[in-house]
Design a protein around this nucleic acid. Structure first.
Lengths: 267, 267
DNA sequence: AAGGTATAAGTTATATGACAAATATTTACA
DNA sequence: TGTAAATATTTGTCATATAACTTATACCTT
């Protein structure tokens, strides 16, 4: 019989797919079955899953439902589908998970999200900088130095690029903790920085920009030096100072008149 | 006939859907188009999207690709599809995003994830408890009290339930910060607690369980009191103490000999 | 025999048509 | 007017066919 599907990995002849339950949609049930097999590592990253046709026979369903199950799985980043070739377990990547958080934050932002972001940075980033000072490698220090060089060379009027470099600086520090959880969870915070900073800069007077960039560079320099010297306490302090300054910049940018104020009364 | 990409009937207010680009798959392009419309809030949560048939005509594609686009969108939590009714923009929920992170953490756990989790908690939770002490409402205090009551009443041998209650305690504190970013990002950390604690308890001597639970209750009590009295510093300290103890428990559970080895020495 | 090319086979992508199942709307009736 | 039945709409699943792409094979040239 060709009942046997793929036997991945080891010699276990038992099908990696659990019997489909009594859920609602067929495509959902098959999605769960395949997901379960992947979670149990019965299929490893890069491995090829059975073809649509094989799964049709295995589950006794039409190609439609198998394809829709694959679509759901690929949308969630669990598998990649290559036309003409097949479906493969995706190399695990944090991007899909991070994108999911970013989407949520974007959709739920009622305009006050930035306050939560700033507060979260105040809470977490000094601790992160302190940890980075303890665990950073020389390679990571070089990356930070390179990032600062990029910042110095960034044209004064290219705000888009500057904020991107800035947020990458903080991502690098989070990575230097060598804590995958910390660096993963902080990514959405840093990813949102450009979005917010755009609106801040938009309200700033142009004259302030040059001085502000000098300060930004100096803050990064201070943080870098502390991390470089392995001084955890100083790194935390430098980071705290940096973020407080950023917050003040933001609050100042709101001063002239909060956008929420109804027109009718003005200066 | 259906060659024409028609503008929606009548006076033609601009279509909410952007023109499809030059991506690879049709279903992917249509997914992006619909996602973009949702991100721009041209369709709000709960609103009904066009039917499959309408989208087929609008994009001049088959039902197959429209359905697969919908499957992807629903897998990502952007829309919900109700048979016989239609597709609706999903009420925004953090669950999908959190699940995505949880899946990533589970798949990438090589056995050392727990160290990162513990360290992340050490970094973040004291700060969170401190913030919660400042912003908690009386309702949230009641929830915390109720949670502690649940913990006291939990059977000593029901580890599954105990860990669930425990992690919920910490989730409640994160929520009490009234910072959506903080409570969202910490969720995966707390969600992973039961998974890890199972293995810790499994290696603990049964005799320790009663004393250990008493200590757990006392820690929660201390944290609660500090948060209740609005003492930010004390709340952070109590939380720090709690987590350090948890870490020691974990490290102790590894002592006798990493996995496999039966504990042969006890008090 | 080695290497490249054309061909064939396998696999996914899309289209179409049909019917089932669930829901929504309209109609008919009391 | 309110309710129930009938009808229409919409999504779910199946089946078949063809296009587009990938991989494997056979063949040819050198």
């Amino acid at each position: 019989m060709e009942e046997e599907i793929h036997s991945p990995a080891g010699g276990n002849p038992v099908s990696p797919f659990q019997k489909i339950g009594s859920e609602k949609l067929l495509s959902g049930r098959i999605e769960e079955s395949i997901e379960s097999a992947i979670r149990k590592k019965q299929y490893l990253a890069g491995q090829k899953l059975p073809t649509e046709g094989e799964l049709c026979k295995l589950f006794s369903v039409s190609r439609t439902v198998v394809r829709e199950a694959f679509r759901r799985l690929s949308a969630r980043g669990l598998v990649v589908i290559r036309q003409g070739s097949g479906a493969y377990v995706n190399e695990i990547s944090s991007e899909s998970a991070i994108d999911s958080i970013n989407l949520y934050l974007e959709l739920t932002d009622d305009g006050n999200m930035i306050f939560d972001i700033i507060r979260a940075r105040q809470l977490f980033e000094p601790e992160i900088a302190g940890l980075a000072a303890l665990y950073r490698t020389t390679g990571e220090l070089e990356e930070l130095a390179g990032n600062m060089e990029e910042l110095r060379n960034c044209p004064l009027d290219d705000i888009e690029k500057e904020t991107e470099i800035d947020s990458r600086f903080h991502i690098l520090i989070a990575k230097a903790t060598h804590n995958t959880v910390v660096s993963l969870l902080m990514r959405p915070v840093f990813d949102s920085m450009p979005r917010f900073k755009r609106s801040i800069f938009a309200k700033n007077k142009i004259d302030d920009r040059q001085a502000e960039k000098r300060r930004l560079i100096q803050f990064h320099e201070d943080i870098y030096q502390a991390i470089n010297s392995g001084d955890s306490r100083e790194a935390a302090y430098a980071m705290q100072t940096h973020i407080k300054r950023s917050e003040r910049n933001f609050l100042d940018s709101l001063k002239p008149g909060v956008e929420g104020l109804k027109p009718g009364v003005d200066g």
